[in-house]
């Protein structure tokens, strides 16, 4: 049994990763809620967010405001805006038109859209094939509590991630648009009859989901100090898995699922021999088992199809 300090250490890492995954997962679950679709290009939106953030930081540097809180804030805001808008564009062009068709069509369309986004970045971003270094903007160093090394950057990432999730939770539970989103998620037809503008609500949902993914993208860049055009593939699959474990359609489930996945990955990497190579296998393996045993997820509701 590994020492407690090591467990806590890894747990902290896992939570931090989990928060990033949760941000992507929330998007998946929101989209599933309002349109009943799995938006497979969401992972590549996450990657776009990272690149948008990088570009914003480069612009900030060029403008002379290269470091510190101001630059970071600017990067977040710019990326959220741009990525959110691209997310809405993707939804309008590609997801909503096919939402009525069979799920196979939407799945294939969004998969292909993800491919297009990925390749576009590869081709059009200068030297897109190489991993791009991401500026180290987080405070270095850390402190120790009872044998557990806590790094400042972990805390900052956790804090930003939590802030984003709280912000989204507030929007969903306290604003009119949030109520509209919840209404559409429950019953789109009834919501429309109550006067909810379906198009605008779906747009808002995609903006929020994509914005969250952008935050996750920048956090990922800050943590790993680099981003790569293929980061969306794994990011997307992990995000979808997390949303599925938590229960598709349930925002708290997505958060829970993200945290669970992050912990699974970190624990596997730390405590299984040759774990760091196989950590994805372990995590996906657990997801697969989970879906076999309890496909509706931890917090998911049992759906009854109307006969």
């Amino acid at each position: 049994m590994p020492p407690l300090e090591l467990l806590l250490q890894q747990a902290l890492n896992g939570l931090m990763l989990g928060v990033m995954y949760a941000l992507i997962a929330v998007g998946f679950t929101l989209f599933f809620g309002v349109l009943d679709v799995i938006h497979f290009s969401h992972g590549d939106i996450y990657m776009l967010g990272a690149f948008a953030g990088l570009t914003a930081l480069a612009a900030a540097t060029a403008a002379g405001v290269g470091s510190g809180v101001v630059a970071l804030a600017f990067a977040f805001l710019a990326s959220i805006l741009v990525t959110g808008l691209i997310g809405v564009a993707a939804e309008r062009l590609c997801v909503k038109p096919l939402a009525r068709a069979s799920p196979l069509m939407t799945l294939l369309a969004t998969l292909s859209l993800g491919l297009v986004i990925r390749e576009a970045v590869l081709i059009f971003y200068p030297r897109g094939a190489d991993p791009k270094p991401f500026p180290r903007l987080l405070p270095q160093g850390g402190f120790e509590i009872g044998g557990v090394a806590v790094r400042y950057e972990n805390l900052v990432i956790l804090a930003i991630g939590l802030a984003a999730m709280i912000a989204v939770d507030l929007v969903i539970t306290r604003t009119r648009m949030g109520a509209a989103i919840r209404a559409v998620a429950q019953d789109a037809e009834a919501a429309q009859m109550m006067g909810v503008d379906l198009d605008r609500t779906v747009d808002a949902t995609f903006f929020i989901g994509s914005g969250l993914a952008a935050v996750a993208g920048i956090l990922s860049g800050l943590y790993y100090s680099e981003i790569h055009f293929i980061m969306g593939i794994t990011g997307g699959v992990i995000g979808f898995s997390a949303a599925a474990i938590g229960g598709l359609g349930n925002v708290y489930g997505a958060i829970l699922g993200g945290l669970v996945f992050g912990l699974l990955q970190t624990m596997a990497a730390a405590f299984i021999p040759r774990g760091s190579e196989f950590r994805d296998v372990v995590a996906f393996g657990v997801v697969m088992l989970f879906l076999i045993v309890r496909p509706r997820g931890i917090l998911g509701a049992r759906t009854v199809e109307r006969v």
Partner: peptide, 14 residues
Amino acid sequence: GHYLALVTIAFVFI
């Protein structure tokens, strides 16, 4: 259907 899709994607990666 989409759970099957996810399981098959996970399998490819694994």
